[in-house]
Design a binder for these strands. Structure first.
Lengths: 207, 207
DNA sequence: GAAATTTCTGAATGTTATTCGGAAATGTAG
DNA sequence: CTACATTTCCGAATAACATTCAGAAATTTC
């Protein structure tokens, strides 16, 4: 019963998800009908309800899968990287690359999810929190090792970091990804780091 | 015909807007029905269509009014303030205060608007752009006067500034405004400014 | 106070999401 | 291969909405 998740079933489910993802991302949640999705997936509207509880559950499934995957990947990516700044850099480049590779998922997460009245209660949200909690740890490490300013508040630094990230991504999505997400990324990163890093006490001053 | 916008009509229109604002902000756009809105406003569903083309037009009217008002106020607020840092500080505090005063409008702008497939084509969007264009000018002024780093890219600085602002506001809205928006604002501002401002060349170095 | 205009309403209409009853397809066991 | 059980599917209801329509009530105009 639980063991072999019959390939047939899995396949159909995936077809539905892919169809929904494309349509939601293209026309928005409201303008996409169940009829649209089931037609694109090649089955009847009624059949779709064998796989998902309803339209909203279907919407939530998409980012749920994506973010779960991200969580699994994140630790692996950061493993073995030394230093808070290097970790932050890796985090940013890694995340942007994942967004560029899965723009439909990103669009649903960034443009449609927050709309949802009970977004805060979803599985997705708690996974997003995990993704962001990692940043807190990195800033704390940076303070401990002296790489970051001793008076840095990790939550504030995280707000700046995430806020900037999300803003760049949202703009890019709203503008239909007409340019590369990585444009000016180096400069943006350096500018933020300038705020976080400990000021090098010039060799001669203060001693 | 165009001159006296009969008070009766204006009043009803406002009642509808207030009802819609409260309901959208509380239950979200999807779960709010025209029946809900018209009941709360004290008229029939059909009558509502005398005032608005439809549900979506009604949604867009709300931020449209709010953002237009902000635009009108912004210049007045910044008038007479000297220096880029002082202007940025005023901008941030002014904007947060306006958000705190009109959290329902803010919620609609931040959580429901971007969902809209043709948000980019709306009046609201071009007004939001105006609001943000102001920041560019301020950063440019800062560079000219030497208050900001000479190598600062104003668009990047603006991304960081707006991204941080929007992130703090969005979190606050999603958490039902359970705390003050101004918590840690001073520290956040200072941290960002640290990135933007020109490094003070210590009195003795370089001469 | 009658005619014109504005503002309103109850009853259609049309679109969608969702459910229901059972048919077709697939799998299982003898 | 055949009978039976299970899975997967569909066409036809049902129900919840947004929106429109035809005309009634209220208000304004002259």
């Amino acid at each position: 019963m639980a063991s072999p998740p019959s390939n047939r079933k899995e396949n159909t489910k995936n077809r539905i998800i892919e169809a929904a993802k494309a349509l939601f991302a293209e026309q928005g949640y409201l303008k996409t009908t169940i009829a649209d999705i089931s037609r694109q997936a090649g089955l009847s509207e009624a059949a779709l309800y064998e796989y998902f509880q309803g339209k909203e559950a279907l919407l939530l499934t998409i980012p749920d899968l994506w973010v779960s995957e991200l969580i699994k990947d994140l630790e692996r990516q950061l493993f073995g990287i030394k230093g808070a700044e290097n970790k932050l850099r890796k985090y940013l480049w890694w995340y942007f690359r994942r967004v560029e590779e899965a723009p439909l998922d990103a669009k649903i997460v960034y443009l449609f999810l927050k709309t949802n009245a009970n977004f805060m209660q979803t599985e997705v949200y708690s996974n997003v929190k995990l993704l962001y909690a990692y940043l807190l740890e990195i800033f704390e490490e940076g303070k401990r090792t002296g790489e970051m300013r001793p008076d840095l508040d990790p939550r504030i630094a995280r707000n700046i970091f995430i806020g900037t990230m999300e803003h760049i991504i949202t703009l890019w999505l709203l503008r239909n990804r007409a340019y590369s997400l990585f444009e000016n990324l180096e400069e943006t990163f350096d500018l933020m780091m300038g705020a976080f890093k400990r000021k090098p006490t010039g060799p001669s001053r203060f001693q």
